[in-house]
Design a protein around this nucleic acid. Sequence first.
DNA 1: TGTTCGCTTTGACGTGGATCAACCCAATGC
DNA 2: GCATTGGGTTGATCCACGTCAAAGCGAACA
Lengths: 251, 251
Amino acid sequence: MPKPSLIEDNLASQDCADCPIRHRAVCARCESDEMEALEEVKYYRTFQAGQTVIWSGDRMDFVASVVTGIASLTQTMEDGRRQMVGLLLPSDFIGRPGRQTAAYDVTAISDVVMCCFRRKPFEEMMVRTPRIAQRLLEMTLDELDAAREWMLLLGRKTAREKIASLIAIIGRRDAELRLRSTGNDLTFDLPLTREAMADYLGLTLETVSRQISALKRDGVIILEGKRHVTVPDFDRLLEEAGDDTDGGLLV
Amino acid sequence: MPKPSLIEDNLASQDCADCPIRHRAVCARCESDEMEALEEVKYYRTFQAGQTVIWSGDRMDFVASVVTGIASLTQTMEDGRRQMVGLLLPSDFIGRPGRQTAAYDVTAISDVVMCCFRRKPFEEMMVRTPRIAQRLLEMTLDELDAAREWMLLLGRKTAREKIASLIAIIGRRDAELRLRSTGNDLTFDLPLTREAMADYLGLTLETVSRQISALKRDGVIILEGKRHVTVPDFDRLLEEAGDDTDGGLLV
DNA sequence: TGTTCGCTTTGACGTGGATCAACCCAATGC
DNA sequence: GCATTGGGTTGATCCACGTCAAAGCGAACA
């Protein structure tokens, strides 16, 4: 291969300096205009808020990553109890090389743009280009860490701590994406409905609502409308979240 | 490299037919006797039940996999609340290439033998030998799936369902390891104390004890002593666990 | 201006699991 | 034999969160 193909280039490279999304792998703005030629292998799909991307058990012959918007992975029990098991933010990967059916329901929470690769060529490419497997391994390990943090939250935290944790997580991700300096005064939108938060946290939506009201009443957060949050003191929020804050660094 | 080194051979190969542990990567019985020469890179360590393998935050300059025994990954909050976030059974991997401090406490639950590789040479090898990254990716994705199943358990299942799920998981793993046919009558030992089960399930040990008693009273399991379990009807157990059992296959 | 529709909030009440405390039991040591 | 120790069980009580029900509120639309 004299010149790496566009896909390889997109997925193998680490960072993209001139756009707010960290990995070129998933950065739409880094595209050249050779795109159309690759329509067969790489393509974009958009989903509206609330739309289901794929159902658990469905055949899935692509892998993808989120370009913009937010999507969720959820598991559902027969009687309807639901638990979110993954929150897909821009740059997150979805689909598993080597598996052809989806293991979870994937739902667009906001409007979502996804960058998809057909699975077969993607897998072939993985064999040819070792950096991709390594990059994917890195991303998967990050996800595993996040899942384990999440398990602590689900298993041991109180409702109040869960809410505080979620707000902290979203605030942090938001700050990262915007490359804002992590000052002590954050302001951002909650991209989730109360119900989605409940699914995330293993609570009911009523409890979510009550605890948000409580945090507001206690001055931990300031709410404008139902979605817009200002955090006057991030350390205070982390304290409420029960997080280990050895100088702000999570070990 | 004319001949692959022993490490590569051990880690790159897929299955080992003639031993009960699935991956040669971690199978002590597959060793040749060239072992000593590699003492610097690959070595074995044993831990007694209850012994701490490594503390969260400690420097960790090896990666390892479990050969025999059971260990746990746990996270602890400042006030002492504890949540198990990983259960390491034979063939499971521990440590993260590219990270030099442990993110979780690792504790031996039973006596454990680990097969360790010094991190630096291991990482170099990963670059040289693409199959290893691919193999590791596969294993990490499996772990991620397990973590997500676990999240459903922590977030949405009742105490009784949690216990039933745990017994099912252990029973299944046990059956796999022994290559027994998965008949409908399993018998095995619970390798965990009530406290460790509580840490796994996000419960207190009292609740664990009560629910085990309840399952016993209701004939879902039969207990001999405190540890030895017989499951007269595995499907019944799965039902109690709230698991989706479309013909026994988990999607 | 009113009407409907989603989402959210708030209240009243019940309950599953935590907490606190006692006790059991088998293994170990003297 | 007796004491000790560590895991396990069981009971009584409490409270955080789920459940059920009603009402609030902004957006879209007529």
